[in-house]
Amino acid sequence: MSARVITITSGKGGVGKTTATANIGVALAALGHRVACIDADIGLRNLDVVMGLENRIVYDLVDVVEGRCKLRQAMIKDKRLPELYLIPAAQTRDKTAVSPTDMVRITDKLREDFDFILIDSPAGIERGFRNAVAPADEVVIITNPEVSAVRDADRIIGLIEAEEKGPAMLIINRVKPEMVRRGEMLTVDDVVDVLAIKLLGIVPEDEAVLTSSNRGTPAAMDEHSKAGQAFRNIGRRLTGEDVPFMSLDGGGSILQRFFRMIGGS
């Protein structure tokens, strides 16, 4: 058995890469898989905070690369799940401290001991992105239903294809069903039509994502969170299960649903 290395990237910043990495990691680990998450955003580390593991960092990715510690020493075990680990980014260095070759070397060492290695890519298309994509077997592109985010996702898809990283998969994050229904937001179909890659998941806007990141407990651990449910579904789809996409047309009060009904669509 050898791990699948999956890089989560977006081009544009702030669309939810780190949140997605943490939540997919939790979802896969909750299914019983052995998961290692790597924060490849050197200098702007965040995955530790979203996962709630920031207080336990001793060594980081750059320490491993520069030989100050063993790989195992930089791995923080998430005690809430059986087999979930984080390798944090360095906070005081920049992207040039790590090379694409380093990333391939590190993930190759991990492959035997894990089922999934998730890499949280930094924004942009420079060195940090190259580092994150170099070891990837599969690439997940995350976007929001906004012109700028979709445009950047399109650019990234082009770069991924040029690197021959196999067909990328798409997560559309922060969908607001109410706005879509009013015609004030790009629809999932609009985004999938233009990007023309396989849809892996649709994640609704959900306050629980923010409150869970406040607490350092990813929303996928919260069974009442819709976004958490969407990320758990994504985890199952990654393992090959055929999970139908969540219906996002619900929501709203009974009165709103009634008006929608007589509104006819």
């Binding site: 445009r151 790009l186 009165l255 709103q256």
Partner: peptide
Amino acid sequence: MGNLFDRLRGRRDRAKSGHVARERL
């Protein structure tokens, strides 16, 4: 309640920002 009012007004989907976004994209 958008749909009911949209209907009363006569749909003007062309002016909706979702449509504008699609065209700009």
